[in-house]
Amino acid sequence: MILGQESYALWLSALQKTSWVTRGSLNPQETERLGKDLVEGISSTVITGSLSASLKKTLEDISIIGVRSGFTPSETAQFVFSMRPYIGDILHTKDYTHVMTLLDEAGLYTFETYLKTREEIIVNQRQDLLELSTPVIRLLDGILAVPLIGTMDSRRTQQIMEKLLNMIVETGAPLTILDITGVAIVDTLVANHILKTAAAVRLLGGNLIITGLSPSIAQTMVHMGVDLSSVITRAVMADGIALALDMLEKEIVKKQQPGNQVKETK
């Protein structure tokens, strides 16, 4: 129940002038609805002394809109804090300290949910990015290619491995070329991940060719004492493809007629 209708109206009109409405994140009706929920939530909170579930829900809604609209945390919390000058009159209370404490608590809660929502978005984006950045390509009949780009951590390796192994089973491809030209840092850990992937592929009955071992990577590997002798390695992907074709006893020949075309001979 809203007692101080006058102050309440004043607060609402003040709210309508903030970036929430002027930037079009909320329309006036929505602002009014959220404002009403907020005041009602606060007034029930004043009695119980702790944030009620419905108030929390309202605050979460506000934070989510704040995040989606690209507001800063302070701007988001402003929705709640803008009530400060009016809340005493709205609730017809003289116990300012108590009300302000609760209002602060509510404001901080928007802060918290703001961060939580942000984090959720980041986690989702990371997931999207992972999926985007690990394609498994059917290069030629019986040859798969995995061009790795970016950093290789254990989570990504795991994902690449799963995707690749499933693809091998699905296509029955005996050979896979793993290209690490685009991997920013190749250290012992990355080398280990590569060896693990190779072992898993071998268990399925496939074979892995690692390409993109530049001179600098080769130097690092030797200096760090990483033993890559159990896998086939090549400097450039073209060599890897040539080797793969050789292993499958296939070759690419030039067509007799004008115009080139890939042709496989067995």
Binding site: Q158, M161, E162, L165, N166, I168, V169, K196, T197, A199, A200, V201, L203, L204
Partner: peptide, 8 residues
């Protein structure tokens, strides 16, 4: 695939 991953 999952068995292979587990073994590795």
């Amino acid at each position: 695939p999952m068995v292979a991953v587990t073994i590795v």
